[in-house]
Lab assay of single mutants.
Amino acid sequence: MTEYKLVVVGAGGVGKSALTIQLIQNHFVDEYDPTIEDSYRKQVVIDGETCLLDILDTAGQEEYSAMRDQYMRTGEGFLCVFAINNTKSFEDIHHYREQIKRVKDSEDVPMVLVGNKCDLPSRTVDTKQAQDLARSYGIPFIETSAKTRQGVDDAFYTLVREIRKHKEKMSKDGKKKKKKSKTKCVIM
């Protein structure tokens, strides 16, 4: 069974824990209790493949930012979460993405942009803004509501699919490099 290491990042209060708990335990946590770091595991079937999701729910508070490099190193894919009623959390996505790329030393890291709290009427981040940002990053965008469960499975499952595509691409690139290195030079 394939294991996928997913990391949920975003500013404090955007609903990272609520999304994760909704996926794992099928219930909505409405009281806000700032996370330092929590880890969850769940076995699911995605596109006919049974897999184990190892999900790291991270601290959004700035005082825990020193811990970010460590979990970013171990993560295979990242859910970059903002709240649709919090423009600052949307603007912060850029910083999370840049930090992930720096730590992973790669421009090509599996990510999904997630606009959470889409059940709320007080939207300050337009869907088109988020779609445009995701398009500019070359990553999928999904709106979710941890409260109603809308888009929750889709967000995590899409990230797994992005990781699969990335692994497939990397193995193809690896095979191309191996083929090239088999060419021999004969000096007579």
Rank of each mutant, 00 (worst) to 15 (best):
E168A: 09
T35S: 01
D92V: 03
K172L: 06
G12C: 07
F78Q: 01
D54F: 01
E37C: 00
N26W: 11
L23D: 01
D38T: 00
D154F: 05
R123H: 11
S136I: 07
D108Q: 05
E37V: 01
G12L: 04
G115V: 10
R102V: 04
M72V: 09
V81G: 04
T58H: 01
S181I: 02
H95F: 15
S122H: 08
K184A: 04
G151M: 11
D38E: 00
A59S: 08
E63T: 05
Q22A: 10
L6A: 06
M72R: 03
E98M: 07
E91I: 06
E49N: 13
S106D: 13
R123A: 10
V14E: 15
D132F: 08
Q131R: 08
Q129Y: 14
F28I: 01
M111T: 02
A11F: 14
M67Q: 13
H166K: 11
F90Y: 11
G15H: 01
A83C: 12
K101H: 15
C80R: 00
Y4E: 09
V109H: 02
V7P: 01
T20E: 01
F78W: 06
G13V: 12
E143S: 05
L53M: 08
K179M: 06
D154Y: 04
A134W: 04
V7L: 11
G75M: 10
K167C: 04
R149A: 05
K104P: 04
G15F: 01
E168N: 04
L6G: 02
R123I: 07
Q70M: 14
M188P: 15
E91V: 05
I187W: 09
V29D: 13
Q43R: 12
R149F: 11
Q150G: 09
F156N: 03
L6S: 05
A134S: 10
K177F: 08
C118V: 08
E63C: 08
V186W: 06
D119L: 12
G77D: 00
R123T: 11
M67Y: 12
Y71M: 13
R123V: 09
K101F: 05
K180T: 15
K101E: 11
A146G: 07
K5S: 07
G15R: 00
G13L: 07
D119I: 11
K182N: 07
Q131K: 08
